[in-house]
Design a binder for these strands. Structure first.
Length: 830
DNA sequence: GGCTCCCGGGG
DNA sequence: GTGTACGGGAGCC
C-alpha cells in the first residue's frame, strides 16, 4: 500500500545486520507515524593519482584491490566489513575521474574501513558524511515536506506510534507540513547568588505551554510547593521527584510533534537530565521509549534530543541564523521577544525566587505566572520562526533539528553537498589538523574602508551594492575548480592579484550553485510582488527569500573559512579584490559628479547632497549601474538628516566602522560603538546612548552637561549600586587559573570563607576605593554597600571611554569633561 | 605584545 | 553520532 507523510525527525538503528532509517512524522490526517527503510552506508576511494596517472596516456585505475573486497576489522562495537564495491565516475574539484564506491555494513564501520584503506595508500572521500544526511540526499527526501512510501504497516515495533515498513520511498511534493502540535517548556530552578548548579539545586517549577492542531491551548505549571492561589494551570506535586515523574507523563501523553523552549539545549534539558539521574528516574520520552539525551558530559553546550520528537531550541536558531538581522545585540529571551513579538517577560525579581521559595511561598504565584509566560514566549517565537526554519530545511534538505544548530559555514557546505549529488561531484575532505593550522595562518586583504574625517554631517545619502560578494563570485566565475585553469591564462586577471585568474570558458560548479540561489531569489521576489498585489499570504515566500539571501551572502565567507571542504583562499581574496575595485570606482564617479564622499565600507558609499537634490544622486546611481557586469547593482539605501563620525582614540584619524546616523523619523542608528556586555557596568551603556542622541540633534552643550552631571553624581556616590555591578563567570576549577583577574580574586576569597565555587558561578563585583591592583579592590555588591565605590575607576574605565570619542568631535577632551566637573563636584583629587 | 581567559543563553 | 562552536575583546604578565 501507499502512504504519504511529512517526516520530521530522524534516527537509525541496526536490526539483524541491516541498517534501518527511522523517519518519524505525521500523515496528512495528523496521525503520527514512523516509517522504516533500509539504507546502506558507503564512502569513496581511489588510488592516489600519481604524476603519470594524470597524463592522458596512463591507463584507468586498476580494479579495487582484492584484499579490500572482503575487508573485515574487529572494533569495540562489532565487525566492520566492506559489503560491496562499485566503480563510478565523479568529479573532484573540477577533475573527472573514476572512484570506487565502497559499501560498509553499518555507519560507524565507515570511518574504521576508510582509515584502513587510507593507511594502505588509497585516498578516501566522504567518510564523515552523517548517515541520515547521506540517506536524505540519496533519496532526494526533504524533511517537513510530503513524502510517499510504498510498503506496509507492521506490528508493534516497540514504538509509541504506528510503524510502516517501506520498500520504496520518494518525495511526493514540495508541500510543507502545517498545523504542527508544539509543546514549549521552561524550568525555574533554585539558585542563590545567580549560581546555577544542577548538581546541588533542585528544579522548583516546570512551565508547559502547548497548542494542538485546532489551536486548543494547553497550559501547566508544575511545582512541589503548596501555596494559596487562583491559577487554574498550577498543579502541585509532593516533591521534585514527583515533579519530574509528572513532567515525563505529560510529555508522553501530550504527543507533541515539536518540543521547544529557549536555550533548552544548554539549560532546561541538561538540568532535567541531571535531576532525573539523581533520583534514578529515566526520562524515557522518546517515541521509541529511549531516554532524553542531554548534556551527558558536562552541563554546558551540547544538544538535547528526544528521539521521534523534533526538538527546536529557538535560541539556537536565533543565535546562529536569524539573530544577525535583529537590532538587539542581546539574544536574551526578553530582548528577542520584545523585538519579534512585542512582548516582554513577566516582571519579577528572579534573585528573590529562592528566598521566597524557602520563606514566603504565597508570593510564588508571580513566579508561576512568570514561568508559564516564558514557556509561552518561546512557543510564540517557535511558531513565528517555523516558516524560516522550514524554508532552510527545504533549501538544504537536512533535518530541521540539525539545520537550526548550524552556523552559516555549515549551512553553505550542506547546501553545496546537496547540489553535489545532482552534478556527480564528490566533496573534498575536511582539512586535517595540520592543514587546518596552515589555513588558519592564511589571511587575505579584506574590504576597502574609506577613512572618515571625524565630524557631524548633514544631508547624507547612502548607496550600496546589492549582494556585492555573491554577484562578484558569479559574474567572475570565482571558485576552486576554475582557478588558474590552463585554458584561460591569457584572459582577464583579478585586479591587484595579477597572478590570479578564473576560467572564462565554462561555468564551474561552485559559482553555478551560487548563481542558482541568486536566480531563485530573483524569481521569488517577482512572485512575492505578484502575490502581494493579489492580497495573498506571502509569509512563507518571504521566509524563503530570506533564507536564500542569507545562504548566498555566506558563500564568500565559506570560501575563506579554514574548515571548509571547498576552501579556496585565493577565491576569497579575488572576491574582495574585485569588490575594492568596484567600490573605489564608484567613489571616484561620485566625486566626479560633485558629491563629496564622507564614508564607504565594503559595499556602501555615503555621500553628501550639498546643494544638489536627491534626483541628481539617482542619476549618478543609474550611471554606475549601466557599466556593471552580471547581476551586480548599486541601490539606494537611504538618506539621513545627520550623521556623526568619531576619531580613533589616538590621533586625528577617523575611526572606521563606528558612527551613528539620525534618520528623518528621529531614530538613531548606532554602528560600532561599544556593545555593552555583562562585564561592563550598566551605567556606561546608558550614558553612551544618551550622549549620541543629544550629539546628533546638535545638543552638544546639553550632552556635556549631562556627562558632567553623571560624573558628579558618580563622585558624590549617588549612582545606585546596581548600575555599577560588573558580572563575570567562573568557568573552571579555581586552582587552575594562572592569572588572577578581579572575578577570580573574588571567587578565591569566597572559597576561603567556605563557599563552594563551582564552574558556572557568576561573580558580581564592584570596584571600591583603596590601594593596589584593580583585583584587590573588587568586592561583592553587598560588601560595597558599606564601602565607597571607586568613582575614579568608573569614571576613567567605564564612563569616559564610552563618551570621549563622541565629545572629542566637538572639541572636548576627557579632561575638559572630567576636570570641569571636579570643580562642580568634590574636586579634591584634581 | 603575547597569552590566557571569558563572553553568549539559562535561574 | 560516519561530530563538538566561534570569533572577539579585555586584562594580566
Amino acid at each position: 500500500m501507499n502512504i504519504r507523510f511529512f517526516p520530521l525527525d530522524f534516527d537509525y538503528k541496526l536490526k539483524e545486520n541491516k541498517v534501518v532509517v527511522y523517519l518519524y512524522g505525521k500523515m496528512e490526517d495528523g496521525t503520527n507515524i514512523c516509517v522504516l527503510q533500509e539504507h546502506q552506508p558507503y564512502f569513496y576511494a581511489r588510488w592516489k593519482p600519481s604524476l603519470e596517472a594524470l597524463s592522458p596516456s596512463s591507463s584507468q585505475p586498476d580494479s579495487f584491490p582484492p584484499e579490500f573486497q572482503q575487508l573485515s576489522l574487529e572494533t569495540s562495537d562489532g565487525v566492520a566489513r566492506t559489503t560491496a564495491v562499485e566503480e563510478v565516475e565523479r568529479e573532484l574539484l573540477g577533475i573527472k575521474s573514476t572512484f570506487w564506491k565502497v559499501y560498509a555494513n553499518y555507519p560507524k564501520a565507515v570511518p574504521v574501513l576508510a582509515q584502513q584503506l587510507e593507511s594502505s595508500g588509497l585516498e578516501v572521500y566522504e567518510r564523515d558524511i552523517l548517515f541520515i544526511h547521506r540517506y536524505l540526499r540519496d533519496h532526494g527526501i526533504t524533511p517537513m515536506t510530503l513524502v510517499e512510501a510504498q510498503g506496509e504497516f507492521v506490528p508493534d515495533q516497540n514504538l509509541r506510534v504506528p510503524v510502516f515498513l517501506a520498500q520504496q520511498l520518494q518525495q511526493f511534493s514540495q508541500e510543507a507540513v502545517q498545523k504542527l502540535k508544539i509543546l514549549s517548556l521552561d524550568i525555574e530552578t533554585y539558585a542563590e547568588k545567580k549560581e546555577i548548579s544542577p548538581v546541588q539545586n533542585p528544579i522548583l517549577m516546570i512551565g508547559l505551554y502547548g497548542q494542538d492542531q485546532s489551536g486548543l491551548e494547553f497550559r501547566k505549571v508544575l511545582t512541589w510547593k503548596r501555596f494559596q492561589h487562583e491559577l487554574g494551570y498550577v498543579e502541585h506535586v509532593q516533591d521534585e521527584r514527583e515533579l519530574l515523574e509528572r513532567f515525563r507523563q505529560i510529555v508522553i501523553d501530550y504527543q507533541p510533534d515539536i518540543i521547544t523552549g529557549y536555550n533548552t539545549d544548554g539549560f532546561d534539558f541538561p538540568y532535567l537530565k541531571v535531576r532525573a539521574d539523581k533520583y534514578n528516574l529515566i526520562l524515557n520520552l522518546g517515541r521509541d521509549h529511549s531516554e532524553l539525551l542531554a548534556g551527558t558530559k558536562s552541563f554546558r553546550d551540547g544538544e538535547a534530543k528526544i528521539k521521534g520528537i523534533l526538538h527546536l531550541d529557538v535560541f539556537k536558531f536565533i543565535r546562529n541564523i536569524f539573530g544577525k538581522d535583529l537590532k538587539t545585540d542581546s539574544y536574551s529571551l526578553d530582548a528577542v521577544s520584545s523585538e519579534l513579538l512585542g512582548y516582554k517577560k513577566h516582571p519579577v525579581n528572579l534573585d528573590e525566587l529562592s528566598h521566597i521559595w524557602n520563606h514566603d511561598p504565597d508570593k510564588l504565584v508571580d513566579f508561576c505566572i512568570y514561568n508559564l509566560h516564558d514557556a509561552h514566549l518561546a512557543f510564540k517565537l517557535c511558531e513565528l520562526l517555523l516558516p524560516d526554519m522550514i524554508e532552510f530545511t527545504k533549501i538544504i534538505g537536512l533535518p530541521t533539528f540539525d539545520l537550526i544548530r548550524m552556523r552559516f559555514s555549515r549551512l553553505v557546505e550542506n547546501y553545496i553537498l546537496k547540489r553535489a549529488i545532482e552534478y556527480k561531484v564528490l566533496a573534498p575532505n575536511k582539512p586535517g589538523e595540520y592543514e587546518s593550522g596552515q589555513r588558519r595562518e592564511e589571511s587575505i586583504q579584506g574590504a576597502f574602508v574609506y577613512e572618515p574625517t571625524p565630524g557631524l554631517y548633514h544631508n547624507i545619502v547612502v548607496f550600496d551594492f546589492r549582494s556585492l560578494y555573491p554577484t562578484i563570485i558569479t559574474a567572475h566565475n570565482i571558485g576552486p575548480e576554475g582557478f588558474r585553469c590552463p585554458c584561460c591564462a591569457d584572459t582577464e586577471h583579478v585586479p591587484e592579484q595579477e597572478t590570479y585568474w578564473f576560467c572564462q570558458k565554462e561555468k564551474k560548479f561552485l559559482p553555478t550553485v551560487l548563481e542558482e540561489l541568486i536566480l531563485r531569489r530573483a524569481d521569488l521576489k517577482r512572485l512575492i510582488k505578484e502575490e502581494k498585489a493579489l492580497g495573498h499570504e506571502i509569509k512563507m515566500l518571504e521566509a524563503r527569500s530570506y533564507a536564500l539571501k542569507l545562504l548566498a551572502n555566506s558563500f564568500y565567507g565559506y570560501l575563506g573559512f579554514f574548515g571548509a571542504r571547498w576552501y579556496c583562499i585565493e577565491c576569497a581574496a579575488s572576491t574582495t579584490a574585485y569588490a575594492r575595485n568596484y567600490i573605489k570606482k564608484t567613489i571616484h564617479q561620485a566625486q566626479e559628479k560633485g558629491f563629496p564622499v564622507i564614508y564607504s565600507d565594503t559595499d556602501s558609499c555615503m555621500l553628501l547632497l550639498g546643494e544638489k537634490i536627491l534626483s541628481q544622486a539617482f542619476e549618478f546611481m543609474n550611471e554606475v549601474n549601466f557599466s556593471l557586469p552580471g547581476s551586480m547593482e548599486l541601490e539606494f539605501q537611504g538618506s539621513y538628516p545627520s550623521g556623526l563620525f568619531v576619531a580613533l582614540k589616538s590621533g586625528e584619524k577617523g575611526a572606521k566602522k563606528k558612527y551613528a546616523l539620525l534618520s528623518s523619523d528621529g531614530q538613531v542608528k548606532i554602528t560600532g560603538f561599544e556593545t555593552v556586555r555583562r562585564n561592563c557596568s550598566p551605567i556606561a551603556k546608558e550614558i553612551q546612548e544618551h550622549v549620541l542622541q543629544l550629539a546628533l540633534t546638535e545638543k552638544v552643550p546639553e550632552a556635556v552637561r549631562y556627562v558632567r552631571d553623571m560624573i558628579k553624581k558618580m563622585k558624590q556616590g549617588e549612582i545606585p549600586l546596581e548600575q555599577l555591578i560588573i558580572k563575570t563567570q567562573i568557568t573552571r576549577e579555581l586552582d587552575s587559573y594562572s592569572s588572577i583577574a578581579p572575578h577570580v580574586a573574588i571567587a578565591l576569597r569566597l572559597q576561603q570563607q567556605g563557599e563552594s565555587i563551582l564552574p558556572g558561578t557568576v561573580v558580581e563585583y564592584v570596584i571600591i576605593t583603596g590601594e593596589g591592583l584593580v583585583r584587590d579592590r573588587a568586592v561583592l555588591p553587598d560588601e560595597a554597600r558599606e564601602r565607597k565605590y571607586d568613582a575614579d575607576y568608573y569614571i576613567y574605565h567605564q564612563i569616559l571611554p564610552a563618551v570621549s570619542s563622541i565629545l572629542a568631535v566637538f572639541g572636548y577632551t576627557e579632561d575638559d569633561v572630567a576636570a570641569d566637573s571636579s570643580q562642580i563636584g568634590l574636586g579634591k583629587f584634581f
